[in-house]
């Protein structure tokens, strides 16, 4: 059973602003039945001041989805659309006090629905709003990363940025991406890696020296491979509870053994090819081939 706080329970059991607005100035729906939760939001907006006069919602979902949706309506009533556009899932979580990590996606759903509705309104009135695309909300930007839940890379990047996420598990908790078949977990890691690199770009990463790998003796070669594995590959795998050991270097064939969660991970082949072989090519030689021992 989830350990919801009293406020979440209150907004779940006595949700405020449930309903629909027949002549809403903006409305949007995110999520769907397949995903297990969905939110339909209705906004009544003063066309002159662009102030949100009323907000109503209907939600299909669990206790935290209902509580998140309800408190969201309370947050935005009285705000201008510009102010509302700056509301993020963090504001929803903060107002509720807390949500279990596994339920963070419920707060993200609230933010998405709000921004979709505001996007529609902005388009109609020729406004430009921060954080909100002027596009048709159905025209999702970005490419689909998680096929099971239809999550795009753009959404993942946005949620990672807003919530300072660092692990794949967090991304799943906040966006659901990777929560079903798991085939996209590697892609999510790549997005995180890319984002972390851009964030930390100014600090020069210490890299092993580039060497004329092919000219080295077999022993030196093995030491270099070991160095790249230890410095460049192991830390990335250990972040996710996995690890890697160099077993042997036979000519250009690098034999490794994946450990920890990597050993049983269905994506281990991809890890070997993309991460391990990629790094070895980058630092040592394009001729190296990685095999699982």
């Amino acid at each position: 059973m989830w350990d919801y706080n009293n406020k979440v329970m209150d907004y779940f059991l006595n949700p405020r602003n449930v309903g629909e607005i027949a002549d809403a100035d903006a409305e949007a729906e995110v999520g769907n039945m397949t995903c297990g939760d969905a939110l339909r939001i209705f906004l009544k907006i003063d066309e002159k001041t662009h102030k949100i006069l009323d907000a109503k919602f209907k939600t299909f979902g669990c206790a935290s989805a209902i509580a998140s949706s309800s408190i969201l309506t309370e947050i935005v009533i009285g705000m201008t659309v510009e102010e509302a556009a700056r509301v993020t899932n963090r504001d929803i979580v903060d107002r509720l006090g807390e949500l279990p990590e596994e339920k963070m996606h419920c707060s993200v759903m609230g933010m998405e629905a709000l921004q979709a509705a505001l996007g529609e309104y902005a388009k109609k009135h020729g406004l430009t709003l921060p954080e909100v695309k002027n596009d048709d909300p159905d025209d999702h930007e970005g490419r689909i990363v998680c096929k099971c839940f239809g999550v795009t890379d753009a959404k993942i990047r946005k949620v990672v940025r807003l919530n300072h996420l660092t692990t794949v598990a967090q991304v799943t908790e906040y966006t659901k991406a990777g929560g079903a078949c798991g085939a996209c977990l590697d892609q999510i890691q790549q997005i995180l890696d890319e984002m972390n690199n851009t964030v930390h770009a100014p600090a020069e990463v210490e890299k092993p020296q580039t060497v004329d790998f092919d000219a080295l003796s077999p022993v030196k070669k093995a030491l270099k491979v070991q160095e790249v594995i230890d410095k460049e590959i192991k830390p990335a795998l250990e972040r996710d509870g996995g690890s890697i050991e160099l077993i042997d270097l036979d000519g250009d064939v690098v034999k490794v053994s994946l450990r920890g969660v990597c050993a049983t991970c269905p994506n281990s082949k991809l890890t070997l090819r993309k991460l391990v072989q990629g790094k070895l090519h980058e630092f040592l030689s394009d001729r190296l081939v990685v095999e699982e021992a």
Binding site: M1, W2, F12, L13, G36, D37, G61, C62, A63, A65
Partner: peptide
């Protein structure tokens, strides 16, 4: 959705379970 049903029932002391994801 099943979790909301279970949590409402729980308030009345009724224990059941759900095939729902949540």
């Amino acid at each position: 959705e099943g979790e909301s049903i279970l949590m409402h029932m729980d308030i009345h002391g009724i224990c059941a379970s759900s095939g729902s994801a949540c």
